[in-house]
């Protein structure tokens, strides 16, 4: 007579580790996502930290989700990483801000149907004592040249994000390659970089949206703004279904139509933090 397993019943010794595992299984099943959440079609979008951290997506996505009975999965990373995720087909669309990279992305056939969505601008932040004299600069480029010349501390995103791309453009225009103890590459999101620059009394380049959202948590002030070179347009691109057949192209296009359409533009225009608008919808023909 061969029995698998040990005796049961009143014997009170049995596979007790199994009981722990069973409990874990029960926990796993109990907290499992509801079937409704699993059933809904999911649209996956990679975007920059600025759109999510500012809170814009919290008001922009729910009306779309309700309208089309789907669920948006947002992966908030830098622009560089966002585009990479589109390139590998791990997302269905990308919502980013680095025009030159976006154009390359489309030209290489990774994405289709690029549309301008909205814009805001970059600002140069620094402490009020302004050791490099950025306030007196004639342009954003001049401001960067002054920071480099003074060797004043500058905290860079250093993460290939849209902001980092813009920053590199500005250094290039200023005719300098930032290098030295004064130049710190954080490799983190905008919020962390503002926080680090605050702690270190350094300069940094930030998008206005994130700065406004963080204004209460930093004593850095805007030292330079308004230049054409500080323009920050956001674009949205569907991942090319010819390259990645599994992407939800139809739904992605619906989302693109939604955010660039009447309703989406209204939401973007009305979105504000403490009464201050963070983003401006692009005009149909481009800003």
């Amino acid at each position: 007579m061969r029995q698998q397993g040990t005796n049961k019943g009143d014997d009170r010794i049995s596979g007790i580790p199994a009981r722990g595992v069973l409990l874990l299984l029960a926990l796993a099943i109990w907290v499992a996502p509801g079937s409704a959440a699993l059933a809904a079609e999911r649209l996956r979008m990679s975007t920059t930290t600025s759109t999510e951290n500012s809170g814009l997506l919290r008001v922009l996505l729910p009306p779309f989700e309700a309208k089309f009975g789907c669920k948006m999965d947002v992966i908030a990373v830098g622009t560089g990483k966002s585009l990479k995720l589109g390139e590998t087909g791990d997302v269905d669309l990308v919502f980013v801000h680095a025009r030159s990279l976006e154009d390359k992305f489309v030209a290489a056939g990774f994405g289709v149907n690029r549309r301008d969505v909205m814009y805001n601008d970059f600002v140069i932040l620094g402490s009020t004592d302004d050791p490099a004299g950025v306030r007196g600069a004639g342009s954003a480029t001049d401001a960067f040249a002054r920071i480099a010349a003074a060797g004043a501390r500058f905290v860079s995103r250093g993460d290939e994000s849209g902001t980092h791309q813009k920053e590199k453009e500005l250094w290039k225009a200023a005719g300098t390659t930032p290098r030295g103890k004064w130049y710190l590459e954080a490799g983190q999101g905008m919020g962390e970089v503002i926080r680090m620059a605050t702690e270190m009394r350094g300069y940094t380049l930030a998008d206005r949206g994130t700065y406004i959202a963080y204004r209460k948590k930093t004593d850095l002030v805007i030292l330079r703004q308004g230049d054409k070179g500080l323009w920050n347009p956001y674009g949205i691109i569907a991942v090319n279904p010819a390259r990645h057949p599994h992407v939800k192209y139809g739904l992605a296009i619906k989302f693109i139509e939604f955010v660039t359409g009447e309703e989406g533009r209204g939401i973007i225009a009305n979105f504000n933090v403490d009464g201050e608008p963070l983003f401006f919808p692009s005009s149909r023909e481009g800003p």
């Binding site: 007579m1 029995q3 040990t6 005796n7 049961k8 009143d10 014997d11 009170r12 010794i13």
Partner: peptide, 18 residues
């Protein structure tokens, strides 16, 4: 002797034999 009751200890071999 195994963890558990005296009864369970004796029951082990018997249970195995069905």
């Amino acid at each position: 002797l195994f963890e558990g009751s005296v009864h369970a200890n004796i029951a082990f071999g018997l249970g195995i034999r069905g």
